[in-house]
Design a protein around this nucleic acid. Structure first.
Lengths: 200, 200
DNA sequence: GTCTATATCTCGATAGAC
DNA sequence: GTCTATCGAGATATAGAC
């Protein structure tokens, strides 16, 4: 009977910090994002960051990567479950990614990819966090495509190709300010899917 | 008759600065690379950077991107010219990329991709430099594959898919410390090439 | 053109009042 | 737990002797 109703500031401070950092990472990267800016965007006092993340910038970065990775993992079933077949699923995945990127003013790239490129040679804990996120995506895709009829090796290789193409197309699309790379990559992978799954 | 023999310090200061910065960018990114570190790695006096690049970090970054982009563009004919057919060329391209990345201790990613993700939302001049580099690659690939029998639209889409897959596979490979993403992406694109070019 | 010293700013991180 | 003031280090950039 503690009277837990939805409070006005329903999002806890710690959560706001993680969300704000995730948003900044995909716009400016890890090294380009300052802790003061995170605090400002999260509307949290500066000291609260070090209260919740005593490990500092690196600990915050690790958690942001894992959390963002988990959220993006939800997109896989969200797109593929309603799709009539894997070929359509692949094409839709790339199309939606392009629409979202364009709608954000070419700002919202994938935070994991940016951070992975920046810190893979600098911070081993963060590199491992990125690796675990990618591994999780690949494993989820492998299981799905295996269930849809591919043998596990094929399924894993195809998933790796999809994730790679998606991340790379994001890079080009963001720089070129065009969805063309995402459309082209999606088309190529959809054709590969048609070949693998034997559909048209 | 000015006696121009190969001098001991045959690489000019300005050149050393650009090369050192390019190397640092692909290891630590743009924001993660300091001007002092560039000077140190280039074995150049700190002030010389601002003598040659009065526009500061951004001007240096722009030139590094364009120069590195031009160097990487040379790899396309270097790999595809000796290849017996486009399918083999595609596969070789991804295989060599993986071998190089691994040989560098998973350090030498593509500097353009890293910088493109970091600054596309921050610095318009640098975003344009990245876009021009990518456009150049895509145009070169389009011309080559058109000459090999594809119609221009197919050739352009296929080139975009290749570059996207390559850049994305680099991201995963660097984080996972494995060439598996590059091999899988190469396999998928080689299969697509076989389909497009009608070879086996 | 080369090189050093330094100005100015912002970074990540900490201390301590409340 | 919240918030402010501030530290020391490192950043970019500049001034000026040589």
């Amino acid at each position: 009977m503690t009277g837990q109703v939805a409070a006005p500031d329903r999002v806890p401070t710690r959560e706001r910090i993680v969300l704000a950092a995730a948003d900044l990472y995909r716009r400016h990267g890890y090294t380009g994002t300052g802790m003061k800016q995170v605090a400002a965007d999260a509307e949290a006092p500066f000291g609260s960051i070090y209260h919740f993340f005593p490990g500092g910038k690196e600990q915050l970065g690790e958690e942001v990567i894992r959390r963002a990775g988990g959220m993006y993992a939800l997109l896989l079933p969200a797109v593929f479950d309603p799709a009539p077949d894997p070929v359509t699923g692949v094409r839709t995945f790339f199309t939606l990614a392009g629409e979202h990127l364009k709608a954000s003013g070419w700002q919202d790239a994938c935070p994991i990819a940016t951070v992975a490129l920046e810190v893979s040679g600098t911070s081993e804990p963060m590199r491992e966090a990125c690796a675990e996120v990618f591994s999780g995506w690949v494993q989820a895709g492998t299981e799905r495509f295996t269930a849809e009829g591919l043998d596990p090796e094929q399924a894993r290789a195809f998933t790796l190709a999809i994730v790679s193409a998606l991340e790379g197309a994001f890079v080009l699309a963001r720089a070129l300010r065009s969805t063309e790379p995402l459309d082209a990559a999606g088309e190529a992978l959809a054709a590969r899917a048609a070949e693998l799954f034997g559909a048209s």
